[in-house]
Design a binder for these strands. Structure first.
Length: 282
DNA sequence: CATAAATGGCTAT
DNA sequence: TAGCCCTTTATGG
C-alpha cells in the first residue's frame, strides 16, 4: 500500500537483495521494453526512496525512477536454480511492467543472498532518467520524515512552508513539495493524533503543533516501515491488530470515535476523502 | 459476471 | 475542479 513507508521498504529490499550486482531486467507486458533494454545486464549501484518515489541507480549514470501511484505494487518471488545452475522464472500472471533478478553466480562467490525476483505492476511512473533529470524531480520534493535529519534542516523546511501557507493543513500534508511520503491514510491519522482540525490554515498552527506533526510523521512512518502496514493507534504500534483495528478515523465514517464517541466525519477535499473526528479535532 | 473503489498525481479548463 | 492514467480487489447482482 503505497505511502512513503512502502517505498522505503522496497528500497531496503533492493539493497539487500541486489546491491552491487549485475541485474537482469525485462518487461513481460512490453510497456517498459526500451527501459529494460537499457538496464538489463548493468550493475545495480543502490536504491533510495524520497517520499513515494523510488530511485534505482545503475552503472553508467542511469537511474530508474518508479512511482507506484494508487495501484502500483511490488511482488517478490524466491527463485530456485536447477542442477545446471539455470533459473526458471515464475509464470507471468497479469500485467507485469518490469521484473528484476540476478543470474546465478552474479552475486559473487560466497554470497549467500537468496535468489529473488522482483515484479512490478501498475506503476504510474517507471522511467530511466539521467542524473540531471533526477535532480529536477528531487528539487520539487519536500523533506521526507524517514530520511535522517541530524541538523534539523529538513524539519525547518517543513515548518517554514507550513507556517507561511494559508492553505489548510489537510491539503499541506498531502502536498509532496511540503512533506514527502504522507498519503491519505497518514494524513487523516496524524491530524487526529494531534487533535488538529484539518481545515486549520498552516499559518494558524502553533509552532508546537507543527513540530508535533513532524515528530509524529517520523514515528508513524517508522512503524510503517517496520511492520509493513500503516498502524496508527498507540496501543497497537508494536503489532498489527488487523485492518479493522489499525486506525482512528481512516475509512471509519459514520462510526463512533474510539476516543469521544462522536460520529467520524467524511468529506471530499480536492477530490480525496478526508476522514476526521469533529469531537476530538477542534 | 459487472461495477466501484483504492494508500496519487498530472494536465487541461 | 474535472478528466485521465495505471491494475487489482472487494462488493453486488
Amino acid at each position: 500500500m503505497p505511502e512513503g513507508h512502502t517505498v522505503h521498504r522496497t528500497a531496503n529490499q533492493f539493497n539487500r537483495a541486489f546491491k552491487g550486482c549485475r541485474l537482469r531486467v525485462d518487461s513481460p507486458q512490453g510497456r517498459f521494453a526500451s527501459g529494460a533494454a537499457v538496464l538489463d545486464g548493468k550493475k545495480f549501484a543502490a536504491a533510495r526512496a524520497i517520499g513515494k518515489q523510488l530511485f534505482l541507480r545503475f552503472e553508467g549514470g542511469h537511474e530508474l525512477r518508479i512511482h507506484l501511484g494508487i495501484y502500483g505494487k511490488w511482488a517478490w518471488h524466491e527463485l530456485q536454480a536447477d542442477a545446471a545452475g539455470s533459473l526458471t522464472l515464475p509464470e507471468v500472471k497479469g500485467e507485469v511492467r518490469a521484473r528484476f533478478w540476478l543470474e546465478p553466480g552474479d552475486a559473487g562467490a560466497g554470497d549467500t543472498r537468496s535468489a529473488v525476483l522482483a515484479e512490478l505492476r501498475g506503476p504510474t511512473i517507471c522511467e530511466v532518467l539521467a542524473s540531471h533529470e533526477v535532480a529536477v524531480v528531487e528539487r520539487r520534493l519536500g523533506p521526507d520524515p524517514l530520511n535522517p535529519d541530524p541538523s534539523g534542516a529538513e524539519y525547518s523546511r517543513f515548518a517554514e512552508k507550513v507556517g507561511k501557507s494559508a492553505k489548510s493543513i489537510a491539503l499541506l500534508l498531502m502536498d509532496q513539495s511540503v512533506i514527502s511520503g504522507i498519503g491519505n491514510v497518514y494524513r487523516a491519522e496524524i491530524l487526529f493524533r494531534a487533535g488538529i482540525n484539518p481545515h486549520t490554515p498552516g499559518k494558524a498552527l502553533t509552532g508546537e503543533q507543527v513540530r508535533e506533526l513532524w515528530r509524529d510523521s517520523v514515528e508513524l512512518l517508522k512503524v510503517g516501515v517496520r511492520e509493513g502496514v500503516m498502524i496508527t493507534r498507540d496501543e497497537h504500534l508494536k503489532r498489527d491488530p488487523g485492518k479493522a483495528e489499525r486506525n482512528h478515523v481512516y475509512k471509519r465514517e459514520g462510526q463512533a470515535c474510539r476516543n469521544c464517541g462522536t460520529s467520524i466525519a467524511i468529506e471530499l477535499l480536492s477530490g480525496r476523502k478526508l476522514y476526521w473526528c469533529p469531537g476530538c479535532q477542534r
